[in-house]
């Protein structure tokens, strides 16, 4: 997924090859991650697609089914991955993820600790931010979930940047080997306040901690614990409002005969006229449905000694 491997970098000459991960795009809300294996097929409501026909095409190409319906084959990115990954837990989405990466001040070379791993949606973006020389150490107490996450990082080509550990961070804290080495720590735990004293030990001076919690009571308790050794404690909520864009025909009241009561002839003329002069306008309005809440993001900076 990341351009660490020069031969896999996106370019005009890059062609889809055996073993590549592609994001199959049907519609903006219907996508799927597929590993390309010659001899294999993808079947969906549009028909059957042969992988062998994809090999050699550039990313971003159309692929046709046996029924002549097409899909697009996209190169994977952490954003697309977030939309297609298997949900083993509730995941973080792009708005929260972006703010976390920005506020944790991640740059290439950083070491970041994360718990829990969950479905690995955030981990993927953390890895992108610290690549090529940094590392993400992520912990989940759920063994199968950690194993699935490991498989996913293998699939997305991030396993050299992400290490998944099985550990109860709330109960045991982060491993001692990371004391004083973490540039940033991210917590997504039911009782984050239990892990904060350990996170404090792991962080470098002035390092940033982030805790994601859906409920304000969790935030309240976390902040009480944070106040002893952290400063610059800030809690945010971030949401995205998306917009629908349409070409809409909005009639002029003077031309469609509703206001100007005229003869039938006049009205017919006006309608044609209106179409020619195009009451067609490209307009945008907020999408009627949206995510109303994801969680609160609390950031804090380790006090300097």
């Amino acid at each position: 997924m990341l351009p660490t491997d020069e031969t896999k970098q996106l370019s005009f000459n890059r062609r889809i090859a055996e073993g590549d991960l592609v994001i199959v795009y049907e519609r903006h809300d219907t996508m799927k991650a597929v590993k390309v294996i010659a001899g294999s097929v993808l079947q969906n409501r549009f028909g059957v697609y042969k992988h062998s026909e994809w090999i050699g095409k550039p990313f971003g190409s159309k692929a046709l089914s046996n029924k002549g319906r097409f899909i697009y084959l996209l190169a994977p990115t952490p954003e697309l991955w977030t939309l297609v990954l298997n949900h083993r837990t509730q995941i973080l989405y792009i708005a929260d993820i972006s703010l976390v990466v920005m506020y944790l001040e991640l740059v290439p070379g950083c070491v970041v600790l994360e718990s829990g791993t969950g479905s690995g949606s955030l981990s993927t973006s953390l890895a992108r931010a610290v690549a090529p020389s940094g590392h993400v150490y992520t912990f989940d107490f759920h063994e199968e979930r950690a194993a699935s996450a490991r498989e996913d990082f293998e699939k997305t080509g991030l396993s050299n940047l992400v290490t998944v550990g099985v550990r109860d961070i709330q109960g045991e804290g982060f491993p001692d080997e990371f004391i004083g080495l973490a540039d940033s720590v991210f917590l997504d735990l039911p009782q984050p306040w239990l892990a904060i004293p350990s996170a404090e030990k792991m962080l470098k001076q002035d390092g940033v901690l982030c805790s994601f919690s859906p409920c304000i009571e969790q935030v309240q308790r976390s902040c009480e614990v944070l106040r002893s050794s952290f400063t610059d404690i800030r809690t945010f909520e971030i949401l995205l409002r998306s917009y629908d864009v349409r070409e809409v025909n909005i009639k002029d009241s003077n031309e469609d005969g509703l206001v100007v009561s005229g003869s039938r002839k006049r009205r017919q003329f006006s309608q044609e006229d209106a179409e020619e002069n195009s009451g067609h306008q490209v307009l945008a309005r907020p999408s009627p449905e949206a995510r109303g809440h994801t969680g609160y993001l609390t950031f804090a900076r380790l006090k300097c000694l």
Binding site: Y72, V219, T235, F236, L240, Y243, A284
Partner: peptide, 13 residues
């Protein structure tokens, strides 16, 4: 493809 217009909304507590 995948065209979207988004507006972030940020509230601090």
């Amino acid at each position: 493809i995948g065209l979207q217009i988004n507006e972030p909304w940020l509230r601090e507590f």
